[in-house]
Design a protein around this nucleic acid. Structure first.
Lengths: 124, 124
DNA sequence: TGTAATTTGTGCGTATGTATC
DNA sequence: AGATACATACGCACAAATTAC
């Protein structure tokens, strides 16, 4: 059931019914309106958080994540890049939101650069 | 408390005490050994799942994720690439594990390619 | 200014279902 | 058949931070 609620909310987000920055109904409201327990509602929201679709600002509420502007980082000859989920330390130091991967660039000289994936884009 | 348990397990994984492929104690065991409820244990494991550190194969158990070999995809002139968390549809179709982002390559000709981030690496 | 209401975070317990061994 | 183990769903309570009055 929590997946159904997540699907429903995801559709409202991708369709634009819930625009970026808009707030979702509170957990209690969602629970009452859909006849679910707050536990199930929180599971649904946790799913959307892991997908990077919403951010939660306790106790203000839950909001549709706004798409950030993208700066381009160039990949030079001999460089490689990967993406993965950040460690808790990286999330704190780079101020990475939930559901946002990091992009790690391995430079040809052996150095490394780590970026929040929602702030940069790789080019060449 | 679930964060402390997650930290403890994360350390055991990164230190090599729990090697890739090794199984974690069951939720019930972890709960008993640390004097926690199963709810808290599940929260801790959910955190490690979102970080891509462990995979759960119900009802076999929870295992340390093995690092997959990386094939390199080359970025050509005019191409750009980003990373983000996959949609549920992408996760199913590309068989993407939990806590694994996707890398999307936008080719100069307008086409797009989507890969599981733990299977490829970007180069040039 | 201070109090109350709202909202999310965290933790506990319980029960049932399902798949594996 | 039975035990084990994870998934899901319900309930309750209190804490902490923000907002409203």
């Amino acid at each position: 059931m929590f997946r159904q609620l997540a699907d429903l909310l995801r559709d409202r987000i991708t369709s634009g019914d819930l625009a970026p920055g808009a707030s979702l109904p509170s957990e209690l409201r969602l629970a009452q309106e859909h006849g679910l327990s707050r536990t199930s509602v929180r599971q649904a929201i946790a799913l959307l958080r892991s997908e990077g679709l919403v951010i939660v600002e306790p106790p203000r509420g839950t909001f549709v994540r706004a798409v950030e502007p993208t700066e381009t980082v160039t990949l030079l000859k001999g460089d490689t890049a990967t993406a993965r989920m950040p460690t808790p330390v990286e999330r704190r130091e780079l101020e990475i939101g939930e559901g946002v991967p990091v992009i790690v660039i391995f430079r040809a000289d052996g150095s490394r650069e780590t970026y929040a994936a929602d702030r940069i884009r790789i080019g060449r």
